[in-house]
Write a protein that binds this DNA or RNA. Structure first.
Length: 242
DNA sequence: GCGACAG
DNA sequence: ATCTTGTCGC
């Protein structure tokens, strides 16, 4: 549609290249910090919140990345939503190609995570990310980015607050309070274990906050961190040799 | 301008 | 993320 919207140097005889930043992370070069923020602003309107029938979710994927001196291992672990048993998994070893910059987490972890997901032999119904989705300065955290990229349901689970504020939920498991940023509800502080500090849930794409909350609670019957993420964390760490 | 800042 | 021991509590 907007074929002339991209400003680039005149290229005399080169076939029109597709817009590189739009295709990221398939693009060869990582974007600059400025380009990365602009890309988030451009893609944020694509995010859709819609109800997800949690009863009918069969497979849930957990994603995480572990690091050690210039190396990283990304892991994707697929669990049966009903039994929480691992039915599939994949890892990929690589090197960080983008620094850790708060707000640009996806540009660091998405490339290896995509690779790991590509190596799966199953098609998960939902992807659970270690981090945030809508609860992000530009409303486009890692979980949103992955969801829009795959056009699949995604959600984020963070261990510490990033943006917004939430009252402490009641101490019982299942209790939650809205996570509000700039007058907007961007997620929930959710108690997955009675008497233990909450996790922070936000939608990524193609789920709504109620569905996300229900799913996270279901995936975390015994520990604070949802089982898919726990397994991905362990797998990536083991594969790294730490 | 200063501090805060997912993992 | 990672660097790190013991310790309080169910």
């Amino acid at each position: 549609m907007n074929a002339s919207a991209t400003n680039s140097e005149p290229s005399p005889s080169t076939p029109a290249p597709s817009p590189p930043s739009t295709l990221w992370p398939r693009a060869a070069e990582p974007p600059s910090v400025e380009e990365a923020r602009a890309l988030q602003d451009r893609l944020a309107p694509e995010v859709r919140a819609e109800p997800l029938d949690v009863e009918r979710v069969g497979l849930v994927a957990g994603l995480d990345v572990s690091y050690t001196e210039g190396r990283l291992v990304a892991a994707a672990v697929v669990l049966s939503a009903r039994t929480l048993e691992v039915v599939d998994s994949a890892t990929v070893a690589s090197e960080p190609r983008f620094p850790y910059v708060p707000g640009l987490f996806a540009f660091r972890e998405l490339p290896p995570l995509i690779d790991a997901i590509d190596r799966l032999g199953t098609a998960p119904d939902v992807f659970v990310c270690d981090g945030f989705g809508l609860a992000h300065p530009r409303r486009f955290g890692l979980a949103c980015h992955l969801g829009v990229l795959l056009d699949r349901p995604t959600l984020g689970v963070g261990k510490t607050p990033f943006v917004g504020r939430a009252e402490p939920p009641a101490p019982e498991r299942g209790a939650w309070s809205p996570l509000v940023d700039d007058g907007e509800v961007v997620g929930r502080a959710l108690r997955t274990r009675t008497g233990v500090k909450p996790v922070y849930v936000s939608i990524g794409h193609r789920v709504d906050l109620d569905s996300a909350t229900e799913l996270v609670l279901r995936m975390a019957p015994n520990y604070r961190i949802p089982e898919p993420i726990r397994r991905a964390d362990r797998l990536s760490r083991d594969h790294l040799g730490v």
